[in-house]
Simulated scan of single mutants.
Amino acid sequence: MYMIYGRQSCDTRKLEEGASIDVGNAKFGGQEALVVLDHVFIPNEYIFLNGEYEFAGMIVERFAGYHRQSYGGCKVGVGDVVIGAAALAAEYNGVEKASAVKDKLIEMTHLNETLYCCGIACSSQGFKTKAGNYQIDLLLANVCKQNVTRFPYEIVRLAEDVAGGLMVTMPSQKDFESDTVVGRNGETIGDICNKFFAAREGVSTEDRQRIMRFLENMCLGAAAVGYRTESMHGAGSPQAQRIMIARQGNIQGKKQFAKDIAGIQ
């Protein structure tokens, strides 16, 4: 087996000596790799279909359904963190009481909880199969994932709006800690950065740095690969869900409902 490590944005800044703030999500990381399985032995008990090609389409649909259902949980968890980080950024910037900021946080919460509703719905509407396992509602699972291809992008847009341009224009941790003298009064680069990037009283510039770098990582950096781009393409790109929605949507049944109500034979 081979693992070819992927490159991420801002790699150089993250690898600078002593960097911890600029890493963004230092606790959990966020990297990708190309995994190549070369001459791998598969024991018979792990073979799902052995020549039973008539079930190939069904197993793909069911696997995709479970995967698309899970996005109503995993991406919502990430969304909770993004919303919290945006709220902290607003607080550190001293604008948390502004009505426009409050409204943006409300909209982010509304979108995130709507995704959660979809995940709960397709799970609760599932049914027990003859084999004893539970099958989620395929239509609602695909609706869930279709929404996930859209809502996180708006959540991130609003987070960037609340945080402000500082999340991408702020100097690096190395600059904030620099002892290089440049000012006429003996001020260092670090002194100048900490002076002009101070916000509200009681909030350190380091805390402000940390939340801004975290948001940059979630919205634009390596972690965004797992939130925004994966929201779009994980478990199938948008068109894959639309195909399944068309198959599961029961348009003929809905037409019959309309005919019955309208008195059409």
Rank of each mutant, 00 (worst) to 15 (best):
K130H: 12
Y116H: 10
L88N: 07
S124I: 14
L111P: 00
G77C: 02
C117H: 12
G126E: 03
E107G: 03
Y66T: 08
Q69F: 09
M108D: 00
I120P: 09
A86F: 01
G73V: 12
F127L: 13
C74I: 13
I83S: 00
Q125W: 14
I106F: 10
G72K: 04
D80H: 09
R68S: 09
G94V: 01
Y66L: 14
G84D: 00
L111W: 03
H67Y: 09
V95E: 08
A85W: 01
F63D: 10
T129V: 10
A131Q: 13
K97H: 15
V76D: 01
G84H: 00
Y71A: 10
G65F: 02
G73K: 13
C122D: 10
C122S: 11
H67D: 09
A85Q: 02
E96Q: 12
E96W: 03
N112W: 06
I106Y: 12
K75Y: 10
C74A: 15
G84Y: 01
A98E: 15
A131V: 13
M108F: 01
A100F: 13
T114E: 12
D103Y: 09
G119M: 00
E91C: 11
T129S: 15
G77P: 00
G79E: 03
K102R: 11
G84Q: 03
S99Q: 15
S124G: 13
Y66D: 12
A86Q: 03
K128W: 11
S123F: 14
I120G: 09
A121P: 06
S124W: 14
G77L: 04
K104E: 08
R62C: 07
A89T: 01
G79T: 03
L105E: 06
K75S: 04
A121H: 13
A87C: 05
A86H: 03
M108R: 04
C74Q: 13
V82W: 03
K97T: 13
K75R: 08
A85R: 00
V78R: 11
A131E: 15
V76A: 02
D80V: 05
A90S: 04
E107V: 07
L111Q: 01
Y116G: 09
D103P: 06
R62L: 10
C118P: 08
T114H: 11
K75A: 07
Q125H: 14
G119P: 03
T129G: 13
G126Y: 06
V82Y: 05
V82N: 00
A121K: 14
K104L: 02
I120L: 12
T129E: 15
E113S: 10
G94P: 01
V101M: 06
L115E: 00
S99F: 10
K75H: 14
H110T: 14
